[in-house]
Amino acid sequence: MGKTHLKMTVNGKEVELLTEPRQLLIHVLREDLNLTGAHIGCESSHCGACTVDMNGMSIKSCTVFAAQAQDAEITTIEGLGSSDGLHVLQEMFKEHHGLQCGYCTPGMITRAHRLLQENSNPTEEEVRFGISGNLCRCTGYQNIVKAILAAAAKMNEVKESA
């Protein structure tokens, strides 16, 4: 039961590495690719801290084997923005105090990004339902929801003026 040759596109870059099929995607991202934005929280597919985007879906990378990610397109929080140029979701989380300890934030923002791709003008209820797979133990969610709604409004403004 040897190693397998894993090829993926991560944040727009093709990567290739050797790993065991049983390795979890979150470990490949964090340990092999040094992308430590996505966090390991509960490790049991409840908390959503490990959420990344895979082939256009928000997924919990603690519950995907490396072998299942063969040829996948992955986007992590590192692919959305950087400290030099924050993504509008990151800006709005900052603006609206959508984070305190920050542990859930990469998963929360990656999930919110996919949610807004699918529904660019969500209601508050749709935002709450859409992030129901991501737990936050600090904020009580209020400011996270505000931040996502504000980001949606900003993104729509930009679209309209374009």
Binding site: S45, G48, M57, V64, R111, L115, F129, G130, S132, G133
Partner: peptide
């Protein structure tokens, strides 16, 4: 059923 992430898969 479950949550959005789980329902994608």
């Amino acid at each position: 059923i479950a949550d959005p992430q789980v329902r994608y898969l």
